[in-house]
Amino acid sequence: MKQAEKFIFFCRLMVVSILLKTTEAFSVRASLSLFYFDSTSNKSVSEHCRCGLYGLNSPLLSARGLVGIPVSDNLQACDENTHFTVTKPPWIALMERGNCSFAEKIKVATRRGATAAVIYNELGKGNNTVLMSHLGAESIVAIMIGNMKGMEILHRIESGMKVTMVIEVGKKHGPWMNQYSIFFTSVSFFIVTAATMGYFIFYSARRLRIARAQSRNQRQLKAKAKAAIEQLQLRTLKQGDKETGPDGDSCVVCIELYKPNEVVRILTCNHLFHKNCIDPWLLEHRTCPMCKCDILKVLGVEVKDVESVQVTVSSESSNVSTANEEDNRSETASSGYASVQGADGSVLEEHAPPENDNMHLVNNESQPPAVHALPHADNPSFEADETQVHEVRS
């Protein structure tokens, strides 16, 4: 899941970068030509800069005219009754950003007959500009310039100079670059979306395959365990048996004392339990709750095919299932192991059926005889004997 979260985070970063590139693709620069005329000295100065940015809703057209500023001290032109220093068309309104929306400023300039509206950024922003959004005010050209350039134009007008401004759309390669950016953005968005969908489809299919493989393996193992359980010996306890006496042991699974007429099952390791208790346990775990003896291996049941399929399943799922299985084993074994931990070799003799005793065997004689093996504690070579038995049977 951590890999999935990292991939989703990466996709989000890609989407944010794509949106930023999309915004940049729709921004169009404006070239400004400024002509300053001093009437006292009859001298004019001109300059040119590519320092404007067209508004998002502005028509991409050229504009020309004298620059007029608000007559009042409020240079933001948010009042509907704002008047400007120039009224003869064509003229361009110069206003400061702030106190109201861009659309309201542009509408005020439009009502006063301006050909274009130039809004300079607020104090402290330098020559930085932002992409203006001014829905409802799309009738005239609207651009934004930096604060330093706007204050320079303002001071020259206040000093008595006449300022003429020519606004032109950026160079011809600008629209081509915008189209290229839009194309790149579309392709990138498509690739990210396709990759995200493909990853989740692959992840879901993989999880479904793992779930099916695990379910199939569990069914196979249960079928093999059921066949192995049927080969184990059954015995009906009688009155007077050592297991039912005052010193008799209890079933490790249910922690209940053995009683006469109860049916017990004897495993390959000579440990016995209630049939109704041990059969469900063996069906799920296939091992003795006390010594962890694997009945499938001792009885020679082939489990290679199941294990090979389990190897192909993801290690994460197999580790989780193994951990759960070990927890269940340890919990049950620890609850009943204390009752049999102090038993010595005589316990095995008590559990083993005597030859001349008249005990009743419930299992069918036609079934193969159970393999009797000593537990690990009494027989250190149990593992070697188990291996030899498995090799002979295979």
Rank of each mutant, 00 (worst) to 15 (best):
I92M: 04
R209N: 14
R29A: 08
H83V: 13
R209H: 10
V67H: 02
P353W: 02
F189S: 15
E316N: 12
T40S: 15
E80M: 11
I182R: 05
S31R: 01
V108R: 02
N356C: 02
C51K: 05
G113Y: 05
S72R: 08
L257P: 15
D247L: 06
K88V: 06
G136A: 02
T115G: 00
F190M: 13
F35R: 12
I69F: 08
H360P: 10
M161E: 11
D247R: 04
G113C: 02
S394T: 15
T268C: 14
C293P: 00
C100A: 11
D357N: 04
T129A: 00
Y180H: 13
H390N: 12
I18W: 00
F102S: 09
G136M: 02
V166I: 11
E326D: 10
I119N: 08
E168K: 14
H271K: 01
G240V: 09
M197C: 08
P280K: 02
T268D: 12
I157Y: 09
G245D: 14
F35N: 14
V67W: 00
T287H: 12
K224R: 09
D294A: 11
G68R: 08
F189G: 15
K275N: 10
D279T: 13
N363G: 06
G113L: 00
T87W: 03
Y120V: 05
G98S: 02
S46D: 07
V347Q: 15
I69Y: 07
A352I: 03
A194I: 10
L283H: 08
V303Q: 01
H351C: 09
N217W: 03
F10R: 11
V163K: 01
L75P: 00
C100F: 00
G170E: 15
K222Y: 01
E104C: 09
Y337Q: 06
E331C: 05
N42F: 03
D357A: 14
H390D: 15
T196C: 12
L56Q: 09
R50H: 06
V311T: 14
H48W: 00
V362P: 00
P353L: 12
V16Y: 05
L61I: 04
A4D: 13
T196P: 00
N276S: 14
I201Y: 13
V252F: 00
Y203D: 06
M151D: 13
K171G: 10
L361I: 12
N270A: 01
I157L: 11
I143S: 05
S62R: 06
D385V: 11
N358V: 01
A30F: 02
Q220N: 13
P70I: 02
Q341N: 07
V15L: 10
T185N: 15
A25C: 05
T22W: 04
G300W: 03
L32T: 11
V86F: 03
A114T: 03
E256H: 08
S204T: 11
G240K: 01
